[in-house]
Design a protein around this nucleic acid. Structure first.
Lengths: 388, 388
DNA sequence: GCAATTAATAAATGACTCTTATAAAAAGAG
DNA sequence: CTCTTTTTATAAGAGTCATTTATTAATTGC
């Protein structure tokens, strides 16, 4: 049942709208703040006092020249009040970003991880990457107010437990919140990587104006993050957006993602290409490069692969009717070479075809979304203690 | 931007929780009400006074015998304060329900409509059915506080315009809210039938405990209503849940639904069955009956059809990870004959298979959901005018 | 008729908000 | 250098809403 709506709730709500104004601005006069927030002056003053007490804002000198009248006091958001950490745990690498409370990224560290690493070794790698990043950003561990970790697989966002994970088999059953929580004195959140990527893309990417978005993480795996009405769609166990069984490869279960498709469908072509190159890039990248160079066989295989992926994306577009689909993950680097053939096919599969764009954040989308999620958690818990 | 949070907001919120208690109870003492709502006594008294002023509650005598102490005043929800109308506009028929503000259904009228009817004639049929239902329920038109209409096709819930409608071609572009609004002096809402059915099934059906549900409307058409986190998932244009392109019939676009599948896949079998029966039932019903009677050919065809439908349902279950899937629409009458073969196949298609149950409300799910939607609209607009 | 019991009413308090009035601090004009 | 103008800060007053704590009212049971 809903608890009683009592007066402090108003303060909390108004503090929230004031913060929303403050976060997007360098410094602001009390008067302007009142106007922008749609609140009266005394209310804003009271809110400011509250926020100052918990360290979220500070006073600043008004050095604007040529202003007459009594000089105004300015307030600014104290982004340095604390920091958040965003962690993207992948199969081959781990990316860690550190940001201040405004979300300004101080550093992003990437650490490569062996694909065959066990649970403990992988977690050690993650912890080392975090330590490295914090050192680089000159942020004390005690200054971290929240962290958020992304992982492939299905994560129960309430508990932080990895329910299933195809690509990291021994990851299953891991309580990410608990094991990483010991590294911080702050709450650790955990979620699926595609879910966080769509949050990132909505915060600072191509989806910033859209409330109904699907982010397709197309790399070695294929997964989706779904946002509807501005809210992440997780499903009952956090498993929404899984595409593993979408029969991209008929009769080859378990082989998902563009890399796998390239290896299977274009086996001969890839083998031929591999002879003429010494690079260590994946099959997908090889195929894309060859197709760009005019290799007609490679182009044919690529078309076939993209047709299958388009079918999966079209299925989602039909069922979920998003406004926008964002292509992200490893293949996003190929840009329009990937996007255009998919976009071309969508109208055949749904009567209301969505826009389709390539990720603006690239492989950083996941950590950016993790940072945003951690920031939300920090702000809400700070506001919970307004009157304490 | 969010408007200022001012004191009356508290009253509104508390009035809402009080109302939530009152609606589910015959009559209640002020004291008990305060306990149940988690509010103080003076607060509920004030809320009660507000609600009494807008006619939503009334005082009632406490005739409980053998209670000592000063007799309590009781309040009851005035369900007779107004009425709502739920309308299910289908291809073959129109169903209209009238209910009071507690949602008690006073009458349900069904009027059959010719499949070939034009826009105007069909709307006339709907209006006649409404008139009939109101007369039957002895409800004045002026006592109707809101109505909600369901229709196949994609409806923009903001405007009430039918964007597309496969089964009623000339329905496209119709502003249902506007054309039906003239029949009432009250707001008319409009939504897709499957969206409303899932609301109904969550209100008074098998999905009452679940926050993540997919309702599959399986009749001549195949459509789905999706609820996630208790909210209807509509998509950007209201088109979420469409399944028309899900390649149930490869190379036979436009032929969706069980009836169509039966006609196509089981063409010969259905023809044979038709010779031995004089009934006018649809192909699907014919097939189901024959399969029940042990006709092995019919059983084979049915298995094939259900396999395809299971694939579509499995695809949704994979992508959306619901807790529960409800099978509704015409075929729901077949019960476990339909449900079991689909249920059996789900674990092959998703690692987190949902529960699958047959609709409890049958063909009334849509109107029940329409009533609930209309009720929500009424209550929110009544509460908006609390302080006026 | 007198406890005991239960409920209604009233009063006091505190947390919010808003509007309006008053005081303060600067720039610019004479 | 003083006075006006302009802008901001502070204070006061009123109104709404909620809570807790008396106080009063209306019964039942003895």
């Amino acid at each position: 049942m809903t608890s009683a709506a009592t007066a402090p709730l108003l303060r909390r709500l108004n503090a929230e709208t004031v913060l929303n104004v403050l976060r997007d601005v360098e410094a602001i006069r009390h008067t302007e703040l009142a106007d922008a927030a749609g609140l009266s002056r005394p209310t804003v003053d009271a809110v400011i006092e509250d926020l100052r007490r918990i360290g979220l804002i500070a006073e600043v000198e008004d050095d604007t020249p040529g202003r007459r009248g009594r000089p105004a006091r300015l307030v600014r958001f104290r982004a340095e009040r604390g920091h958040v950490v965003g962690i993207d745990i992948g199969v081959h690498k781990c990316m860690v970003s550190v940001a201040d409370l405004r979300g300004v990224v101080l550093t992003t560290q990437v650490r490569s991880l062996g694909q065959e690493l066990g649970r403990k070794e992988r977690l050690d790698g993650v912890r080392k990457a975090v330590r490295e990043a914090l050192k680089q950003a000159r942020v004390e561990r005690s200054a971290v107010l929240a962290a958020c970790a992304a992982t492939p697989g299905i994560v129960d966002p309430r508990t932080g437990v990895v329910l299933t994970c195809d690509v990291l088999p021994d990851w299953k059953g891991l309580n990410l919140r608990a094991v990483l929580g010991r590294s911080f004195g702050a709450p650790v959140l955990a979620d699926n990587d595609a879910n966080l990527a769509v949050v990132g893309e909505r915060w600072r990417g191509v989806a910033s104006t859209s409330e109904d978005v699907i982010y397709v993480l197309a790399g070695e795996r294929l997964g989706a993050g779904i946002v509807s009405g501005g809210q992440v769609f997780r499903g009952h166990d956090g498993g929404a957006g899984e595409m593993s069984f979408l029969s991209l490869l008929e009769h080859t279960p378990g082989a998902e993602g563009i890399g796998a498709l390239a290896s299977h469908i274009g086996k001969e072509v890839v083998a031929r290409l591999r002879e003429h190159t010494s690079s260590l890039t994946g099959d997908a990248a090889l195929l894309l490069a060859a197709a760009r160079d005019g290799d007609t066989e490679a182009q044919q295989v690529l078309e076939e692969i993209l047709a299958r992926i388009a079918r999966a994306i079209g299925t989602m577009a039909l069922l979920l009717n998003p406004e926008l689909i964002v292509i992200g993950g490893g293949v996003a680097a190929a840009g329009e070479q990937i996007a255009e053939p998919i976009r071309r096919r969508l109208p055949r599969m749904t009567s209301l075809p969505p826009r389709l764009e390539v990720s603006a954040l690239g492989d950083k989308a996941v950590t950016v979304g993790a940072l945003r999620t951690a920031l939300d958690s920090v702000e809400s818990s700070l506001l919970d203690n307004l009157n304490a």
